[in-house]
Design a protein around this nucleic acid. Sequence first.
DNA 1: ACACCCTCCTGGAGGC
DNA 2: TGCCTCCAGGAGGGTG
Length: 288
Amino acid sequence: MPELPEVEYIARSLDARLPGQTVCDVVVRWERTLATHDPTSFRSALCGLTFQSVGRRGKFLLLELPPYWLLIHLRMTGRLYYCPAPQPDWEQNRHVHLILSLDRDARLYLHDIRKFGRAYLTFDPQEVVGNLGIEPLSPELTPERLAQELRSRRRQLKPLLLDQRVLAGLGNIYVDEALWAASIHPLTRSHTLTDAQIAELHENLRRILRDAIAHGGTTLRDYRGPCDETGQHQFSLAVYGRAGTPCRRCGTLIERTVVAQRGTHYCPVCQPVPTEGEETLDEPQTDS
DNA sequence: ACACCCTCCTGGAGGC
DNA sequence: TGCCTCCAGGAGGGTG
């Protein structure tokens, strides 16, 4: 499932290929892929436009096609595949829902087994990504800013970190990895973290995201880069998908549980369950 | 404010 | 071998 590192890798790869290319034709095979248009208006809006740049915001790909922006969210199983010539296998693939024909017969395919991915065509990207929180790798995300985001809420840490309105781009894999690296239990209440824990979380979160980008992302099953390449970060995972295997730090078997309807992987020794005492101490006031 | 559940989807895995 | 059921989960919506 593409999260920040995978989307960042895809954006960089496409930014080296798409700028200067003009859209010659558009084929929509699954209408609901289009979040903002019907196939006819989508096609007539895009045809003749030229790519200017490709970037990322959270888990959204931002494809600049003046005067429009084409925003793509890959959700669970979405893939973008670029090739300099039409590929019969891809043209006929039943999971290809969108095909852009470019200059010199190049192709950009949107492939999505579960059909959750969405494409948004807009003049103003803020209409789509305006509610996203801070970028985890931005210089603005200092330990102090992270502390402010965490302490202004009283939520379980895992669902908070997954909330795109707070931090933009984190998904299930990297949240589990970051919490393990910082030795924090996923159910810990956000306002109970110490300065030291927040510093650990800040540092490890950013390190893991940078490593994963450098590794071309994590390929567990479906993820591929725009040239069909797999990522390599799956070999560096400490907890995600490792239930029943030894913790890389202490040797205890990694456990899997469910938090906020999401599979959650952690080390029961390195990430001890937060004690109830902290919370009751912190909120002694009761309703009257 | 926050937790919880449902919906969208399909392929893969497990049970028998 | 084959059929059936369950499960994974990002995001948005509704409910309590």
